[in-house]
Design a protein around this nucleic acid. Sequence first.
DNA 1: TTTCATGTTCAGCA
DNA 2: GTGCTGAACATGAA
Length: 262
Amino acid sequence: MPELPDVETFRRYLKSRVLGKVVERVEVLAPAMLRDISTEQLHSQLRGSRLRTTRRHGKYLFLECEDRGWLLLHFGMTGYPQVGRHGASRDEPRFRVRFLGGESLAFFDRRKLGRIALVRDVDAFIRTRKLGPDALDIGWRTFHARLHRKRGSVKAALMDQHTIAGIGNVYADEILFRARLHPAAEPTAVTVSTWRRVYRSLRTVLDQAVAAGAAPSRLPRTSLLSNRHKNGRCPRCGSRLRTMRLGGRTTYYCAREQRTRT
DNA sequence: TTTCATGTTCAGCA
DNA sequence: GTGCTGAACATGAA
């Protein structure tokens, strides 16, 4: 479920497990996941390099490889990293970085929708891709300025990575549920005080999710996340949750509590 | 068997 | 440029 909280959890995990390690070799089991680089190039670029720092922007994770640039990892819908001794896991990873000393970083991704690349400069990458500010860094003024004039729905605006980076389908629903705002509300019709509520909700929801290590079981019981399924009920008022399609994705909301205005 | 799924990207259309 | 829809990517789960 790689949205911002998941990727931030991955980042912290990798920070504690692979920094300082030296790359021995790289194995690409699913070459289609590479972007703008071949397996051979990636291997020769990374071999002998020491991992120095980690960075995250939105749903992108970067590992700095000393003198070689940054290894970019995007987890798509089903990707996740795992560090351990070679071959410790039953599943076959799509990508693996072996380190001197015997450990390796494996990238699992059933659906192969994840992406792997090597970039020279993270900030340049963010500019080129026109990614918006990271959802955990954005301040109230910037948030309001970037969102309140958008067309379409508030939910689509929250999920637009060019507007604000890191929020996906699940957390967009969660943020709007907590803010009690209807996901289909038009951004231009939302009052400033309601935008404030959305902003505060965004901070609370993301902060709590990161603190919980993005584990649904460790999120507040009043969260929508654990109820987003057929026959799911609103954890606050008990009414049946409704669904609709917004921005091409299934949207869960409580029709009784989430209003179009206010 | 069919439908749906947490993400991104592109084509086609308004 | 903005936004929407549908498709593609590739695979598992309900």
